[in-house]
Design a binder for these strands. Structure first.
Lengths: 333, 333
DNA sequence: ATGAAAGCGCTAACAT
DNA sequence: ATGTTAGCGCTTTCAT
């Protein structure tokens, strides 16, 4: 038989109100002795209050939904970890959902989270999403957008990365090192991230008076396979390039691999620059020069922002945090 | 104003009972018309039933806790993903918790999960845990153990990997290839996983009539840093070895790196064998030969087992699933 | 085929 | 300093 607050109350010879107050640290006006007595019984009986019952009346679940494309993509674990750490500090739990960049799955998950009365959602949306949600029930729950930008109702904050600046820094560095024919193996341009990186790339070329060549920019996905394919495409086009700027590290790593297979030495024949600085970036050969994104911090900040919104429901806020990248120079350039 | 079942009922001109029945597909004896009418109103009003209120009476939350050391460790994302996929299929959500192998954090999380009335827990315990839980409240909730073995109350199933066999297969392969001085850079032996791998290593040596040398076995942690250190130790001891069997891929990858820095070529001077087959194993140079663990499947099976237990509370089961490993031969051996 | 009513375990406004 | 009471939104038993 599950033990309830009522049991504790009668066992202690007090009312449930008194027990409840003690449980919730609203015990300003509870006598020391009562407090002690009740606490003792609670411990004895190993009583655990039901959060479900509590949520029923407080309308809060202390649960945050984390909706991301795929935890298996090396970009996300750190982000998830950051969010979880902050949530945990503040007494929240994280419910995690993988959408595979699928719009239907996204909506399904959001619905689930609303049904389960998650207090809020941290959301990295699908690269296929071009508009807001069909489901209006969504608007009942605050959302923090992370990494990928967009505007629609319900968004109470954003944590983004300065992709333009990161890309600009990286490509400028390449240019300074006298690489002049820089191919850009991009991820999809449906996302602001890709778009901004492309802009940074163009801007850097311009500032160094290098002409932009459309042929050198090819667009694919943020996946390892795309790196292999992309090099094939570039080679088949018979293009001349002395450096490759990759949309992310996953692409960069497979590009390096492919290039080596083709007998190119890196960075002598071709320099390779990545984006992200994933866990493995300094373990490959040659160690990857890349633009580090603060993934852990992103997750952490997003949770912080969300909790802030949740615990100050009066203040209408919509903060936008833009985190900086860092150029990590290693051996591949 | 949040819309409730009551609103739907009065709007449809029926009782809440009727609405509830329709919501839960217990509508055998609800007329077609009523059903249709109610469903229409529900859609119109964008009504989402509160799972919290439902849980209150059904005593089920359709939530599963996933307690792991660290999602940031490349071993876990796939496992987590497997669990999430299965959970999702069955209409469950996953609450995820990182313990950093810390016993206090473990107990804290377990408590949280009990408070939140998670229906069950999938649990990869800390490598520091040597006994069951202090907290008896835990016994109220079924647990599936994953990857790391142990016995205590509340355990309703296990999904493990045949570490002995995996290790045996890998080391035998090395031996067959005529590597005879095989160092073993192990993870901790507090875990059955490490212990079993050591046993497999010993058994293989024995079967190939190679004498076991205590000096060649060094024990550390499942972390990249340990790979670097371990090679230092081996070198300082001035030991002769022609192959290294690593406790996991993380160690193997840093071992390869270190060895290359020392001017050794792989696999000519030294062969390297890993364990896990993480995402990056075939992207490093040389591609890593390793013993693949079915991580995704482990997570998936664990969720399956748990859901089975949850949905058949009458049957007393305690299944133990032992998954097989696979030797993936690449270029490092 | 449908509804009335009790109750899940807790909190909070209001008394005392 | 402590207790009474009314709900939170749903499911379920039992009537009708």
């Amino acid at each position: 038989m599950k033990i309830t607050i009522k049991d504790i109350a009668s066992l202690s010879g007090v009312s449930t109100t008194t027990v409840s107050k003690i449980l919730n640290n609203k015990d300003k006006d509870i006598s020391k002795e009562t407090r002690k007595k009740v606490l003792k019984i609670i411990k004895e009986k190993n009583y655990v209050p039901s959060t479900v019952a509590r949520s029923m009346v407080t309308r809060k679940t202390k649960t945050i939904g984390l909706v991301i494309p795929d935890i298996t993509n090396p970009f996300f674990p750190e982000l998830a970890r950051g969010a979880e750490d902050k949530a945990n500090e503040a007494g929240y739990n994280i419910m995690f959902c993988n959408t595979d960049d699928d719009l239907d799955k996204e909506e399904k998950y959001i619905n689930m989270l609303v049904e389960k009365m998650a207090d809020g959602i941290i959301f990295t949306q699908s690269d296929k999403r071009t508009e807001g949600f069909k489901n209006t029930s969504l608007n009942s729950i605050p959302i923090i957008l992370i990494d990928r930008d967009m505007d629609y109702e319900g968004i109470k904050g954003k944590v983004l990365v300065n992709n333009f600046d990161g890309s600009y820094k990286g490509v400028s560095y390449l240019l300074k090192k006298d690489y002049k024919k820089i191919a850009f193996i991009s991820g999809p341009l449906t996302l602001n991230t890709g778009l901004e990186r492309l802009k940074g790339y163009k801007k850097a070329l311009k500032d160094f008076s290098v002409e932009y060549d459309d042929n050198l920019v090819i667009i694919g996905e943020y996946k390892r396979e795309w790196g292999f394919e992309a090099i094939d495409i570039l080679m088949n086009k018979n293009l001349d390039f002395d450096a490759v700027f990759c949309g992310n590290d996953l692409i960069a790593i497979s590009v390096i691999k492919k290039l080596k297979e083709l007998g190119k030495s890196i960075p002598e024949d071709v320099a390779v620059l990545g984006f992200d600085d994933i866990y493995m970036a300094d373990l490959i050969e040659p160690e990857l020069t890349t633009i580090r994104q603060p993934n852990y911090k992103m997750g952490y900040k997003a949770a912080e922002l969300l909790i802030n919104v949740l615990e100050n429901p009066n203040k209408k806020m919509n903060e936008k945090i833009i985190l900086d990248t860092e150029l990590i120079i290693r051996k591949s350039t």
